[in-house]
Design a protein around this nucleic acid. Sequence first.
DNA 1: AATGAATGAGGGTTCATTCAT
DNA 2: TATGAATGAACCCTCATTCAT
Lengths: 222, 222, 222, 222
Amino acid sequence: MKTRARRKAERPGEILEAAFDAFAERGFAATRMEDVAARAGVTKGAIYFYFETKERLFEETVSHYSQTMLADAGAMLASIEGGSAEKLRAFLQYLYSRCAYDRYGRDLIGLMVSDGRNFPQLVERHHRDFFAPAMGMVSDLLAAGAASGDFRPEIVAHGAEIAVAPSVFLSLMRLIFGASLALDEEAYIACHIDLLLQGLLTPKGRKNLSAGKACGEGRAPI
Amino acid sequence: MKTRARRKAERPGEILEAAFDAFAERGFAATRMEDVAARAGVTKGAIYFYFETKERLFEETVSHYSQTMLADAGAMLASIEGGSAEKLRAFLQYLYSRCAYDRYGRDLIGLMVSDGRNFPQLVERHHRDFFAPAMGMVSDLLAAGAASGDFRPEIVAHGAEIAVAPSVFLSLMRLIFGASLALDEEAYIACHIDLLLQGLLTPKGRKNLSAGKACGEGRAPI
Amino acid sequence: MKTRARRKAERPGEILEAAFDAFAERGFAATRMEDVAARAGVTKGAIYFYFETKERLFEETVSHYSQTMLADAGAMLASIEGGSAEKLRAFLQYLYSRCAYDRYGRDLIGLMVSDGRNFPQLVERHHRDFFAPAMGMVSDLLAAGAASGDFRPEIVAHGAEIAVAPSVFLSLMRLIFGASLALDEEAYIACHIDLLLQGLLTPKGRKNLSAGKACGEGRAPI
Amino acid sequence: MKTRARRKAERPGEILEAAFDAFAERGFAATRMEDVAARAGVTKGAIYFYFETKERLFEETVSHYSQTMLADAGAMLASIEGGSAEKLRAFLQYLYSRCAYDRYGRDLIGLMVSDGRNFPQLVERHHRDFFAPAMGMVSDLLAAGAASGDFRPEIVAHGAEIAVAPSVFLSLMRLIFGASLALDEEAYIACHIDLLLQGLLTPKGRKNLSAGKACGEGRAPI
DNA sequence: AATGAATGAGGGTTCATTCAT
DNA sequence: TATGAATGAACCCTCATTCAT
């Protein structure tokens, strides 16, 4: 058993975890403080020792998870090697793992949709600290690809959103329809990347890519 | 002033409209029956004359709007003329008008995300009666294009979702970030259709399209 | 089908019947005007044409039934022939038929108990116009019996209540436990009359009774 | 002032008392939770900490009081000394004290009549755990008296109900007419016991009784 | 006379929040 | 720190009553 001091240091984190799960499952309004408390293994009163109100708990929960996720994404992106197309592909794979396989990314989207309306400053912060930087990473990637002649330059302006959309779309379907949505995710992802690169690459970029190697899943060079 | 009989015939519809607006604005749990009533210009009690419970009101509201939208989409699709690429482009333009310009499509997505969790049979019905048929329309369109040699056949399996995703993504961004999301929608849509067709068309399809005519909005042939 | 005029004349009575049934079944507070209306085959509004408020409807319903019952009891008592013991026996039999077999007498008791509290002037009227006269009939009967030497004179003061109590007790048991109370009513009644007369009769009265004839239902002389 | 812990232990009992009074006074439907709360000196919400719903509160209240009363009656009966007639007389005196002088027994009857309809399983339990055992006690008493030759054996079958009826009848009159019912209870009770024993005793039993002593209230031997 | 849509006050229940322990 | 009894505001829903038709 943990020492009391140790337990104490972990309490806020445990509550945040519990809160994220609870809010993600039912939404802000339908989640009771007691639900959160029960999940965290404490009583209602204890939460108020760490968080002023239900609203503050929600805000800190969302902030905590979005910061964690952004840092994670940045680290991931920094670690990729290869040409623009490879980087893009790797980033998209990462996105899918976060939005489709994990529930965290997906649930974060869900929370922003369900309850963002009632937390405008939270949304704003989320946009500034999470969404814009994340989209910026993709934009930069596309811009670098255009600069190197691999990507068609016309698409730099909004390509990031278009590139990313199918993974968000998949998350959304999972959010709404849950496991009952029968869908071959592997094939879905492959189709997405195929279509995207087909649309994105210049003839030169295409050559670079095939030169690179027989791509990912052994599919014919695009 | 309307006669009593006339008013009665219109009441349920007025309440459904008010309910849609109210639920869309705050979500199911945070919406009070009194909010709906006030919007509809009646008192709380009157709603219970037409709808058994808040839950039933929500279900009937969502059903009503999704049925209306599906019928609308079907009629639209039936009216388009032209080759597969033209049809796809027209359908996407339509989708954008419903998801991005209108709030109805967007809000329907929002409601499914926020509150679908607590209405599983509603979600199921929505999937069966709305989502699956709607995706089916796009799939059929792609399959026809592949059959005629205009579209690459590999993408038929999941192309519909990928094709549609950016419009849903845009809706989602508007749902979450509202008007504060600065984004040139015209350019976004053009970029989407450009990238998509670029990825979708076969060399033959490309030729057909350019032969067709200087396309839709006077943009350069893709 | 009845003529309109005829139906109209009967409406108030139909509503009173419906109201009695409804109130008896659920009590005043738990009965809705709509329940009464549905039973009477009219709509809520129609009741208000004949009765000012729910309270008034209740009062008139109870009054109507108690008057009817008292008149009935008086007529019955006037028609009995025979000695004091015979009269008493006949009256008790009548009481049982009204309190145990019929539901009307029983339900009237039930209504007085459940809702009398909230209708003090109704209770007062019921006492004055129904209960006191009814008990008076029995008292007079006992007094006559004592005067003729058939009944022991000591019991005249409270004998009426004691004599009547078992039939009311049976009603009460049926009110509370309903049909689930297994009880041989014939034997119960016989036991009651047996015990009562045994306690009531003087030696002379006993002789008169047996001389009178093999009593009522062919039971052995008491 | 009591400590918090002490108060907590007493709360449920206080609420049950308040609930019994409130329900007895107005019936289930007409009693508001706030009435109960006010009587108990707490707020509405506090009741819900101890009792799930108004229905449950009612059930537990009735159960609590009926159990208490049955135990009390059993203890009383066990403590009586003397012959069958003495025991019967003592038990009836006890019944009168509970049904006529106390309001608890009377009010319990009132509650069963007013609201039993809507709590069928409560009625069933009341019958099984209270009414049947209580009547059983009296039946046993009568059977013992018949076995010893004091009571006429014919009356054993339903004598218990007949014996008990006048005390219930008196309760009922008090329930309905309240204090406004002018009635000499002492004389009423004496008349009841007189009539009952007169009807019940065999010649032998009569002798035993007079031999026993100049009975209870100094009245002439029956 | 009768209908039934509509009102509005009221009551049961929930739950965020507090605070004595 | 943590508990959990208690508060009180708010919300869903019911239903007696009204009134235009």
